[in-house]
Amino acid sequence: MIDGSFLRALFARLRRPSLRGLVAGLVGALAAILPARAEPVFPPAGSLGLAPPAGMTPAKSFAGFEHRSGASIILMEMPPEAWDQISQKFTPEAVAASGFRVKGEREALPVQGGEGFVLRGSQSANGLTYTKWVAVVRGAPGTGLVTVQVPESAAKQVPGKAVEAALRTIAFRAKASVADQVAALPYTIGDTAGYRPVVVFAGNSLILTEGPKDVDPQGEQPAILITPSLGQVAVPSGGEATLARRVFAAHKDARDVAVTGEESSPRGSAIVVRLRGTYTDTRTSRPMAMTQTMVFEGDRYLRVLGFADAAKADALARAERVAASVALR
């Protein structure tokens, strides 16, 4: 047992110059041996972050980090209630349909102030094979999805051990206001035309709506979805309209999609493709109308999608006003 007299004697000895020098030397040696604690880095206005591996820098077109080799870490934030649904869907069997080949079982991942798990494996895309990690985590601000992809050719530049260490630094901080999150988006909106921002996700996408509901699972309110491309996109000159039609027809929760109007025009150095059409909502069987504006600029594009009940033509006209005012930073 250590009593008070022992502690008093120890402190008295530490006041001697020779012992103070010895202690200082030991502290310095330990600092050289032990790695510094890696502090998480957060995207602007984001509440989910981590300490990225060496050589990875904050991404310009999405929430996360990128490496010159093509490796990336994508951070996606979701509401707290998304945890139950997401955690059930991310199993080795469920993600196999997407081409993600999981090795082993999902493993618990420690998260400060929360919990999580990670899946490890590989996936092929665009002629490359990636080593892949997907972590699903939750904390007080909400649910997070962290996706790490490293080309096999970059295994030495972004080694697996460095990725594993980074995943163990995942952290949450207090959520920023919607206004602050909108201000941090990689594009600006000059005219909201009566719509209001509701939620920012993935650090680069925005949902606006018209009406009192923030959550509208049945799609009763007119809404706008703004999403930029993730990184560079190889769209051949003259192929912009083809891509626009393809993504228009693939709209989620839609069947019997029909294009009723199409326009292409230049906007400075960009090409703008606008489509109008109709579809049937698969959730409610209601007839709906939709407008899509895609702005192709260099190796990037920006997509603005407006949808509303087929009888609300004015809502779609104002969605096109919003689209005309959006510009990439």
Rank of each mutant, 00 (worst) to 15 (best):
T131M: 08
V146M: 06
A82L: 07
R106I: 10
L26K: 02
S18Q: 11
L275M: 10
Y130V: 06
L243Q: 10
A97K: 15
F117V: 12
R303I: 04
R173P: 03
D216A: 11
E263Y: 00
P266E: 04
S18H: 07
E93W: 03
A31K: 06
R276W: 04
V235S: 10
W83Q: 06
E320D: 15
A223C: 01
I189V: 15
A12I: 00
K156M: 08
F90M: 11
G46C: 12
Q123F: 01
R15S: 13
A184C: 10
Q232T: 14
E77P: 05
P44R: 09
V326W: 03
R274G: 04
R321L: 11
I33T: 11
F296W: 05
T293D: 04
L22P: 00
A154R: 02
V295W: 03
A82P: 05
A202H: 05
M290V: 15
E93L: 05
K252V: 13
F62R: 10
L14D: 02
S325I: 03
D309Y: 05
D253S: 12
A223E: 12
I2N: 05
P92S: 09
S205H: 02
L167V: 10
R173F: 09
E39V: 14
G104V: 07
R37I: 05
P197R: 09
L208M: 15
Q149Y: 00
T147H: 07
A324F: 01
D256A: 14
E115D: 12
L185S: 01
G21S: 14
P228C: 04
E39W: 00
Y279S: 09
F11K: 13
S205K: 13
T91A: 06
G113F: 04
V136Q: 00
L145Y: 11
A82C: 09
V304T: 14
A176P: 01
P159L: 11
G160P: 02
S87H: 07
A324Q: 13
V23F: 14
G219D: 11
S269V: 04
M56K: 02
A323Y: 06
P17W: 04
K89Y: 14
R68Q: 08
I74P: 00
